[in-house]
């Protein structure tokens, strides 16, 4: 059986075909989940946001026009939801996040990896929302500047500036891991 492309599935979703919608969810749930998780750092919030993103896709299906790849469109929806969510939410209590810059030895590579992941998430959480989103889209999702611009609703130049500032802000917090790598 021939597999339908995302572009072929969306008109079916518009016509109320929930089977087509299910295929889109199965294909792209990982992207939506990763962005939301990397942005929020919280699995429950991430699931809620990823679910909302797919429901928005469903609701907006009658107005959908294929100006870009469906994947880019989904990134746009998730990005907006995440940024709106952060605007509405109260500031996060930072004491729940682990401190990064310690040289305390940890037993075994797995513990090192866990500590590293927690510290990276902590460093990301400390960034302003739009810096964080730029890092997530480029480094975790591998989007080009043009795709990021669509997803974030900004110009290519603006997202490149955001990325540069985000790199500058993250560099001191992640210096320890670069040192370990050498």
């Amino acid at each position: 059986m021939q597999t339908l492309s995302d572009g072929d599935l969306m008109p079916r979703v518009r016509d109320g075909d929930l089977f087509a919608f299910a295929q889109l969810v199965l294909r792209h749930q990982a992207e939506a989940w990763r962005v939301a998780y990397r942005f929020t750092g919280d699995a429950a919030e991430a699931e809620d946001l990823a679910q909302q993103a797919f429901l928005k896709v469903l609701d907006a299906a009658p107005r959908y026009t294929a100006t870009a790849a469906f994947r880019t469109y989904l990134y746009q929806v998730v990005t907006r939801l995440c940024l709106d969510h952060r605007r509405k939410k109260r500031p996060m209590l930072m004491e729940v996040l682990p401190e990064c810059a310690t040289d305390a030895p940890t037993p075994g590579e797995e513990a090192d990896a866990v500590e590293r992941d927690q510290c990276i998430q902590s460093a990301l959480a400390a960034l302003p929302s739009d810096y964080r989103m730029a890092v997530v889209l480029r480094y975790f999702e591998g989007l080009s500047a043009a795709e990021m611009a669509v997803a974030m609703g900004r110009s290519v130049k603006a997202v490149e500036r955001l990325l540069a500032r985000a790199r500058d802000a993250l560099a001191p917090r992640l210096e320890l891991f670069r040192g370990k790598m050498r």
């Binding site: 299910a22 749930q29 989940w33 998780y37 990397r38 990823a50 590293r116 992941d117 480094y139 992640l174």
Partner: peptide, 22 residues
């Protein structure tokens, strides 16, 4: 920065996510 971030693992999509969305 890329060399640090590329080593991190994102947890997998929660089990049953697609069922709940549907």
């Amino acid at each position: 920065l890329a060399s640090v971030l590329v080593q991190t693992e994102t947890p997998p999509v929660p089990s049953g996510f697609e069922t709940r969305v549907l």
